[in-house]
């Protein structure tokens, strides 16, 4: 199974939301990481055939997904960042409706399993209009999984979920990623760290990095520092390095920084995490573009 993006670009007038996005994906979990306006949603909407790319192709097993049309949608699952539901339908009605829309076989059994998976069994007869944001999101995930998709795309899937549900979701994604392509966009780096096989950093529509988590962290080895300082405000005002964390203490503060060079005499290097990666690459890319 292979999902290939070949020079996919999308422009809205003069603004280029996506520029020559070229990535090949096989089975596994791919995390799209980037700030707002990076092009994550644009990419997902191009893949979902909700918008037409200005140029380029998206191929699934060698076939253009737009040409495939219904055939591709049959093996595709998508949960957008914002979506609506029919408020007067119950959770069960909603899943039955989408099961019909997606032509799901053995729908009743599938629905029962999914409701257990997303922990909505108790709310099955409740009207969706009365659902909390987190419940709607869980229902959205269930809808995306109804047709057992080979390509699963989730835009901010864990937004609004509590930590317990977020862990449950991560486990679910890990389970289902065995024989499918899972793409998810998120700002929650802990989700990326926990389940992503590959991370794609996207900024201004351009791919900055496309690699696994370990390689990504190694790429900024030696660039993450910690130092104890007395006057935090002075340090912050210097603005010559990026501060990822300030932990106030009784005799000063412990600052975690991202910098190519040693910021202070007493600074020591520490193991980087994905937040540091985010800070390093996106600020750096912004500076280069300037």
């Amino acid at each position: 199974m292979e999902l290939k993006f070949r020079n996919v670009s999308k422009s809205y007038g003069k603004k280029e939301a996506l520029k020559n996005f070229s990535v090949t994906m096989k089975e596994g979990v791919y995390a799209l990481l980037g700030p707002n306006g990076a092009g994550k949603s644009t990419l997902m909407n191009c893949l979902s055939d909700l918008i037409t790319p200005t140029s380029g192709q998206i191929l699934f097993d060698g076939k253009d997904t737009r040409t495939m049309g219904k055939e591709f949608r049959a093996i595709y699952g998508f949960m957008p960042q914002s979506f609506g539901l029919y408020g007067s339908f119950t959770a069960l009605d909603t899943l039955k409706y989408f099961a019909k829309l997606k032509d799901v076989k053995n729908a009743d059994q599938k629905i029962k399993e999914l409701l257990e998976t997303v922990n909505l069994t108790d709310a099955v007869k409740q009207k969706v209009g009365g659902f909390s944001g987190g419940m709607k999101r869980r229902l959205g995930i269930a809808i995306a999984l109804l047709n057992d998709p080979k390509v699963l795309v989730l835009d901010e899937p864990t937004a609004g979920l509590d930590p317990k549900e977020r862990i449950r979701f991560r486990n679910l994604i890990s389970e289902v990623s065995f024989n499918r392509v899972v793409i998810f966009a998120t700002h929650i780096v802990s989700d990326v760290e926990a389940i992503a096989n590959k991370v794609i950093l996207l900024q201004h529509g351009v791919v900055i990095k496309n690699t696994d988590v370990t390689s990504l962290l190694e790429s900024i080895n030696g660039c993450v520092w910690e130092a104890k300082v007395q006057n935090v405000d002075e340090v912050v005002a210097q603005d010559s390095f990026k501060i990822s964390n300030i932990a106030k203490q009784s005799d000063g503060a412990m600052i975690r920084m991202v910098s190519d060079e040693k910021p202070f005499d007493n600074a020591v290097t520490v193991a980087p995490n994905l937040e540091d990666v985010y800070l390093y690459y996106f600020d750096e890319a912004a500076n280069e573009n300037d």
Binding site: S48, D49, L50, P80, F83, G87, F98, L101, D103
Partner: peptide
């Protein structure tokens, strides 16, 4: 107005058949 349009359109039968 409800935003369900998007979920419908990415479904197999969510366009012509619907």
């Amino acid at each position: 107005s409800s935003g369900v349009h998007t979920l419908n359109m990415v479904s197999k039968n969510g366009r012509v058949k619907l």
